[in-house]
């Protein structure tokens, strides 16, 4: 075990994967940084600091700085994967899936099924997402809901350094395309990370806390907000189960249903807007499959149905926070 933050865990995992497997390549804008400049390659090492040191070690043939061309970045990753490589492609901001949407949803997602199982497309698309930097409407979105809706894509959203490593390694060993969502506000989060080839299977939720009175399913950054709310509730003797699904596709339905069967109460916390969200999806799942266990209607704590505003006062109001989660938990307990 080594203590490190999410940023370093991702960096280390990519380093180890590239050392282990020559078919792993990384491509994206400024992932090395400084190509064609006097400062030279590696002037930056990725604007998020997640690809530091890679180009120096593995060279520009494997750590590829690309022009600003997201369709070509993702499409090239697809073609390389169909040809036997294991590309990792970085979208500097998850919002840019708007630019390369076709490659993600009509191409990568379809190959394995559409080609009768004779193709594999093991790409890892790294999508840096989430609000919290006042980066406004086009640089803040939590778009995992969109890609979770597409059959053929796996969607991971790690919240701890250990899971960042474990899920990334799992992605690099599977045969399916993985949309790997990294929350900007979680990069600095520290934790223990197992050494060596640590893998976390997809579709297995992490029980972040056991409390027994109310089930909170929280996504991405919302896990830490749920933990804060649960701390306050604990002072009043209210115990929360907090489930971090870790992957939204595949989704660990069993972990959620098992918990709700115990608690009879569900709160889902999701940074995306409410319509067609992972929150509404989990709400529907529980309504369908755990109906008789429910003691209160499921509560969905989500962002509002608006683009993400710039002004700090508005952005703070946009992102679901601990007080809203706490209030939702109390509503499930007060119901009826």
């Amino acid at each position: 075990m080594t203590v490190m933050n999410v940023r370093d865990a991702i960096n280390q995992t990519i380093h180890e994967a590239m050392e282990r497997d020559p078919s792993v390549i990384l491509l994206g804008e400024d992932v090395a940084g400084g190509a064609g400049t006097a400062g030279g390659q590696e002037a930056i090492g990725g604007i998020w600091g997640t690809s530091t040191g890679l180009v120096g070690k593995f060279g520009p043939e494997r750590v590829i700085d690309t022009p600003i061309s997201e369709s070509a970045i993702v499409g090239a990753a697809a073609g390389a994967a169909l040809s036997g490589m294991r590309p990792i492609a970085e979208l500097m901001f998850a919002d840019f899936i708007g630019v390369c949407g076709d490659q993600l949803i009509n191409q990568i997602a379809k190959f394995r099924y559409m080609f009768g199982g004779n193709a594999r497309c093991p790409v890892v698309i790294r999508l840096i997402y989430g609000a919290g930097m006042n980066a406004a409407a086009q640089h803040s979105q939590a778009f995992y809901n969109l890609l979770t809706a597409i059959p053929g894509l796996k969607v991971a959203l790690p919240t701890t350094p250990a899971d960042a490593k474990g899920l990334m390694n799992e992605a690099l060993h599977g045969d399916d395309p993985v949309m790997f969502f990294e929350h900007k506000a979680l990069y600095g989060r520290k934790g223990e990370v197992p050494d060596g080839l640590h893998r976390v299977p997809f579709g297995h939720a992490r029980m972040a806390r056991e409390g027994g009175d109310v089930t909170i399913v929280a996504l991405g950054r919302m896990v830490s907000f749920a933990e804060k709310a649960a701390d306050k509730l604990a002072a009043d003797g209210i115990g929360c189960d907090i489930i971090d699904p870790r992957t939204t596709s595949p989704l660990d339905e069993e972990a959620i249903l098992d918990s709700v069967e115990q608690t009879g109460r569900l709160v889902v916390v999701d940074e995306s807007p409410p319509r067609c969200s992972v929150a509404s999806d989990i709400g529907a799942l529980v309504a369908q499959k755990a109906f008789t266990s429910l003691d209160a209607p499921p509560e969905l704590v989500t962002a509002p149905h608006t683009p993400i505003p710039f002004a700090p006062e508005l952005e703070r109001a946009y992102v679901p926070g601990p007080p809203a989660i706490e209030a939702a938990v109390r509503r499930t307990l007060d119901w009826g």
Binding site: E29, D30, G33, G34, A35, G36, I47, D65, P67
Partner: peptide, 12 residues
Amino acid sequence: HYSEHTGDSYAV
């Protein structure tokens, strides 16, 4: 001559 940290002689 630059897009972020990349030179135009490389990217164009």
